[in-house]
Amino acid sequence: MNVLELRGLTKKFGDFIAVDNMSLQIREGEIFGFLGSNGAGKSTTINMISSLLRPSGGEIRILDRDATKQTRFAKMNLGIVPQDLAIYEDMTAFENVSFFAGLYGLRGNDLKERVQEALEFVGLSDKAKSFPKNFSGGMKRRLNIACAIAHKPKLIIMDEPTVGIDPQSRNYILTSVRKLNDSGCTIIYTSHYMEEVEEICSRIAIVDHGKIIAEGTKEQLKATITDVKDIRIELKSLDALDLEQLKSIPGIRVLSVQQDDNMVRIQSDAAVDNLNRILKQLIDSGMEIRAVEEQAPNLETVFLTLTGRNLRD
């Protein structure tokens, strides 16, 4: 059964089309990765599914019912973990989860049990009476998840749930996502960390300019770019780098620069042997090469090849 189905979903802001005739099916039990750089239309789509925005056109079906018409049914079966923390700092962890779960009709002992269960699930049961203002970033992120799951939704949308937290908390959250999925929840997962998506998602959609430009399992997506090789060159400095000169080398499809680690990433035709020419070009420009690596295509390569941009652009 499809837990979520989008049929020609469109959202316009004036003349700007943020989501353009998007269609998608997410089946029960999937962890569905939703990838797109900033402004691709990913958040707008999620906001429409969450009833925060009204679609300009198309249809959203949750558990086979029209979500725009049967809003209450759709909301009852949906849990959202927003990218920005959505918790009250002056209310205890228990009160936060209890308040939001109460809005889904839970009352009395049932409510209390579900809240305790949710806090236990995210590893915060010993912090139930503590205030989030005293929590670490990772603990706040976990509480953010607890607030979305206490009412046991069928579909959970997690928008960047691991942003800005330590590796330990990230691992905890990823494990929690898997456990939620094992318990029967369908999950839509967005992240800027490609390795997370690759690790936990069973199916992935890549969104660009409001449209889904690729969809499938990670293996299926990687298979779409067998004719591309991924070359990574680490330089001492990027100061003298002339991208236009590099682009003129035959076979090169996409060039991108990672400023943080002085890395140039090149997607080139696999059939064209141009590595020597690329290196010569860089050396002639007076650049010092520290490392060269040619990788098999991964999800990031797929994204870069399809969109021409890094996920974090």
């Binding site: 969450s50 925060l52 009852m76 959202i80 927003p82 939001f100 809005l103």
Partner: peptide
């Protein structure tokens, strides 16, 4: 929390 409130039934 506006998003969470608006997404609640």
């Amino acid at each position: 929390t506006a998003a969470r409130l608006a997404a609640a039934p």
